[in-house]
Design a protein around this nucleic acid. Structure first.
Lengths: 151, 151
DNA sequence: ATAACATAGTTGACAAAGTCAACTATGTGT
DNA sequence: ACACATAGTTGACTTTGTCAACTATGTTAT
């Protein structure tokens, strides 16, 4: 993979795809959440993130930011906080029924977004795309591991 | 494309890939530009965007924001502004030599980012990924057109 | 020609997304 | 008990935008 054309294609894809996802996210998450908040809720559920610190670490953002958003979620009754019995510094986060319902709404909207993008795609093309995504996801997982080992 | 597994894979890819690109952008653009500024410069060059309005339209952000960033670029001598002779409302933007040099720096960094991600990938896998990106880029172009027709 | 309207860009006020450093409270190792 | 590390909070700040009102210019219809 050294040809200029390939790099140009990849960069074009990167810009276009992130742009598309970004714009769509804004339109789609018309709950009273901002899209970052939706993202945080989603990652919490998908990766069983139960503490401010683990969320901040996972998303590679500052814990101050997460702390404030969690406070907001708490005020909106989307989550509950209980102090960890074995480590009093930790505030374990769990979803309330309202939080879980909101997650389902986000989930449905996200699926619709994907469907919208790929409806016109043929089976054959879809198969190539899915293979590619599988390959890249695996590659990214590996990079992640590398980084963890390195630090 | 209806299986839950496929959607799950796509969504995982979306989250992971945008996350990766986002984090990398922050690390890589260690010019004195913020990453949005780098993005704006890049899109200006790639798409021959010569006015505040066309940049704002292309990137789907507010023109107030672009106006301020262009003002900053001007102060940094990255661009020059000349009033359009045939339409006095327009301020045509052109790059200065300094601006062009900065663009090359960004360009080199971006290419390095791509290379970093794909170095360990086999030729065969790379071929699948490039095919997929080609397909998706085309699909996204089509969606874009659809939107323009619709509006 | 001129009134009515549209478009390009600027500005002020604000909101949203995120960072940094200092702090409190708790836990761990010696 | 002291030193050190970690979890979370808070205040001040920066970055990344948005919105509405404005000026200046251009276009259209009468």
């Amino acid at each position: 993979m050294n040809q200029d054309n390939d790099i140009t294609l990849i960069r074009q894809f990167n810009r276009q795809y992130t742009q598309y996802l970004g714009v769509f996210d804004k339109e789609i998450f018309n709950t009273d959440l901002t899209w970052s908040e939706a993202r945080i809720l989603l990652e919490m559920q998908l990766n069983d993130l139960e503490t401010v610190t683990s969320i901040a670490h996972f998303l590679k953002v500052d814990k101050a930011y997460i702390s404030r958003i969690i406070k907001k979620f708490k005020k909106q009754d989307l989550i509950e906080l209980v102090q960890d019995k074995t480590d009093g510094r930790k505030q374990l986060i769990t979803f309330t029924p309202a939080g879980l319902m909101l997650l389902e709404t986000i989930d449905t909207a996200s699926n619709a977004q994907i469907n919208n993008l790929f409806t016109d795609m043929s089976q054959a093309d879809m198969s190539i795309i899915l293979q590619a995504m599988q390959l890249m996801t695996t590659a990214l997982d590996t990079k992640e591991e590398d980084n963890h080992v390195a630090n």
